[in-house]
């Protein structure tokens, strides 16, 4: 198995605001790990810190045994962490295929056709729309495109930030099915979700973040059954 990502006691500030207060967790190869929590708990901030968009003041982040807490964001991507930011950040003016090709910016040229085929295999919907302008896709398709684009760089670890945001329930099911498929195909996944029920149902392990700290952790099942989590996030 082996650990892919280790986050050790990170502290992140937005100016004077202490957003992350000593969070530690790890992600093992082949797992789906999810971070759940209320709005403003620090879930997205944690992902941003891992991908190098934010810096932690103290603590350390290790990816495949190497410290990345001072590595530039663009280098982290080529090391094998792909981050799908919240809110379907796609290149609106480019076609679907161009978006995917942009995702392969740090990938070796000869790997691109293979990765592209893999993405189209996982997202048949995108294949039907290769030359459509990305901005005209539906919300669900845009989310798929954002995920597909992240896969183009051959990531060891895929970080998904709120993939279910603003999607109809049936699409949420589809997205989570794809997440599980990607995981089965060998991608380790770190998932941040508001939709705790859904996230816990697919996750191997889960952490609950509350106001910048980890308050609970366990397997997905355990947390789904825990009274605290049920009260706070699953509605009784």
């Amino acid at each position: 198995m082996g650990t892919v990502l280790t986050v050790k006691n990170i502290n992140v500030y937005y100016g004077a605001i202490h957003a992350i207060k000593g969070i530690s967790f790890d992600v093992n190869r082949g797992e789906i790990v999810t971070l759940i929590g209320a709005n403003g708990a620090g879930k997205s901030t944690t992902l941003h810190t891992v991908s190098g968009l934010l810096r932690s003041k103290t603590g350390d982040i290790e990816f495949l045994g190497e410290s990345i807490s001072h590595t530039a964001a663009h280098k982290i991507v080529s090391m094998g962490i792909s981050h799908v930011p919240e809110g379907r950040r796609i290149f609106q003016g480019m076609t679907v295929q161009e978006n995917l090709e942009m995702g392969a910016f740090v990938t070796k040229q000869d790997r691109i056709p293979e990765n592209l085929a893999y993405v189209y295999e996982q997202f048949p919907r995108l294949k039907e729309r290769t030359s459509q302008i990305a901005g005209t896709l539906s919300g669900g398709e845009q989310q798929m495109l954002a995920m597909g684009r992240a896969l183009m760089s051959d990531p060891e670890l895929l970080m998904l930030d709120e993939p279910s945001m603003g999607l109809a329930p049936i699409l949420v099911d589809q997205i989570f099915e794809i997440i599980q498929n990607l995981n089965k195909a060998g991608t380790t996944i770190l998932l941040v979700e508001q939709n705790a029920q859904m996230a816990l149902s697919v996750a191997d392990r889960a952490y609950v973040i509350e106001t910048g700290k980890i308050s609970l952790s366990g397997t997905g099942e355990e947390l789904a059954r825990s009274d605290e989590v049920r009260k706070a996030y699953l509605g009784g």
Binding site: H74, K75, V77, V84, F91, M94, M102, G103, F105
Partner: peptide, 22 residues
Amino acid sequence: KQGRAIMAIRDNRIAGESIGLD
């Protein structure tokens, strides 16, 4: 290739960062 990267960052800076553009 560089031009496309420049335009991608213009279109969406965060997405550009997330796919590894400097």
